[in-house]
Amino acid sequence: MTLGLYTAGDSWLHRLFPITKLIFSLSAIAIIFGGPNKWLSAILPGVISILILWSAGIAWRALKLIVQLLTPIAVILFIVHGFFGPANHQILMRLGPFVLGQEGLMYASLIVVRLVSTLASSLLLVTSTHPGSLIQALEQTGLSRKLVYLLGSPLLLLPQMARRIQTIRSAQQSRGLETQGNLLQRIKALFPLVAPLVFSALVDVEERSLALEVRGFSAPTPKTNLTEIPDTTKQQVLRWGMIVIAVCFLVFEFWRKRNGYD
């Protein structure tokens, strides 16, 4: 079963305490953008994430999502930076009045690699963690239920939005709206899809908040949990280890730059 990006399973990654995965994702992102060797820092967390996803049997879905999401962005980045990059000096190719520069291509490649790694390390968390489990784990850390819901709501909104888009698209298609075809046709179809999506989402948000209220979401009582998500001392050590490594990398990079080693 899938819920938004989450894929159900019983792998070691699925069983891991959600906060451990969250800390891994955040540490990886910090290193990707702030690590000392920019290429190594960009590539390594992504490779590790994909290997972990592969060992959990959900790498294929994650890679498919990465390709789907990043292909258009990568194409745009390569065109913009390759042909119009301000640092372009080494010319690789001429296409009429346009010049493809090596520096621009390298810069675009670095951004794409960073995006792939960021997405891979984020997907490690969201594809193996039910949004409810992440929310419950955050609650177990002592955060207030309201704050946790606020943090987790983007994950909860994704599947709702996907379901609603599907319903609206089917309804509009049955009334003759062309959602396939060339770019112009797709742009034309956007408004009849987006307008009902936004309005229905607003109505749903109100209903959802009412439903939460009557179920005691803001009741002035201490909260309990039917079940506790198990955490282990090993994972606690691992989390602190990841935080320390990420902080060390960031501090080292900051020191290097400050002392003119870059």
Binding site: P131, G132, Q136, A211, R215, G216, F217, L226, T227
Partner: peptide, 17 residues
Amino acid sequence: SEMRYTVFEEVAFGLEN
């Protein structure tokens, strides 16, 4: 609520609150 995984846990949500 979408915050719980099964029907059983979903019913528990209000009690937990």
